Computed example of a mutant assay.
Amino acid sequence: MDVKLNFRLVNPYTRKCYDLPPLPPYDSLHDSTTYVKGSISEEFYSFESMKSMLVAKAILDRDPSHSSEFKVLMMYGERNSLAFWKLGDPTWTLITVACIFFTDIIFFKEDFYAVGNFYNNNDIYLVNTGPNPNAKHVGPHIKHRGTFAYLVDYMGELLLVQRFRFFFNERFITKRIIVKKIDLEGKSYSEYKPMEGHSVFLGANSCITVDPSKYPTCRKNAIYLTDRPHNISEEQGCKDLWIYDMVEGSFSRYYSARWYIPASPIWLNPT
């Protein structure tokens, strides 16, 4: 994204690029009810203060190198609002859902889904990108007790991972993980009990599930966590880098990072 909010989709391996439309006008990126001209809110919602969180996440429904038709869904702005773009569209199409702050999006079994916070619940929405775009509540009400909620495609099962972070020694540290298995047809959920032994790599970008038999250094039944941008400092680097054992319910550190970068580290699975 450049300073004029223009986007370019880039494949880092093939260098193939696609130009995307710019974001909607900046005034629509914040909650107008809290914005007063000339107030502290105006300074808080300035471009300089907001630019690092204009876009929280963007995902694809198809690999552009294998399909001439693909869509991009993103979470943007103060409330992580939803918008999508498909090849050939001149602008982004906005999807308005009142009072919802979305925390994650996923393309799962040929559909886009989003999880949001609403009245202390984590609710799952089916995102319709057809002629009448909308977000329809399709999942169960799950008590929201974590700091972040993620959607994970775990070998064809949809999991909701709730991550609990606490302020410790001037940093936010993950201290608890809860994993739920979601039944979209029955609109129910259950505690997930790992059996297959796969590993999950969880972070601000798309979550990745891998087979440890193909990656011998990966732990079975483990969730690898990355840090968040606001938790990274020049003095301390990244501190919230952990492996969570889903069987034992324990945490261990996999890397003591000392670097400083102004964004969250991401997982990359070369193909």
Rank of each mutant, 00 (worst) to 15 (best):
I243C: 13
V200H: 00
D227Q: 10
G237A: 08
S199M: 02
S190H: 07
N231G: 08
E196R: 13
F201M: 04
K193C: 05
Y244D: 03
C207F: 00
R219C: 12
C218W: 10
Y215Q: 01
Y192D: 00
Y215P: 01
G203D: 08
I232V: 15
C207D: 09
W242A: 02
D245E: 09
I223Y: 04
V200K: 00
H230L: 10
I223E: 02
M195T: 15
E191G: 05
I232P: 03
T209G: 04
N205G: 15
R219F: 13
E191W: 02
T226H: 05
T217M: 14
T226R: 02
H198Q: 10
Y192E: 00
A222Q: 02
P229A: 08
L202F: 02
S190E: 14
L241G: 07
H230V: 06
N231W: 01
I208A: 02
P229Q: 07
T209A: 10
S206W: 00
V200C: 11
Y244W: 14
E234Q: 14
D227E: 13
M195W: 05
L202H: 04
V247L: 15
S206H: 08
G237N: 07
P216T: 11
L225Q: 04
E196F: 03
G237H: 06
W242L: 13
T226L: 12
T226C: 04
S233T: 15
E196V: 13
P212D: 12
I232A: 01
G237Y: 07
D227L: 04
Y244N: 05
P212Y: 15
Y224M: 05
D227M: 06
G203R: 05
I208L: 10
L202N: 02
R228Q: 12
P229D: 04
M246Q: 13
S206A: 14
T209Y: 00
P216Y: 12
G203W: 03
S233V: 07
H198G: 04
V210Q: 04
C238V: 01
G203K: 05
Q236S: 13
A222L: 02
A204K: 10
K220A: 14
C207Q: 12
S206Y: 04
A222T: 14
Q236G: 10
G237W: 02
N205T: 14
S233A: 04
T209M: 03
C207H: 06
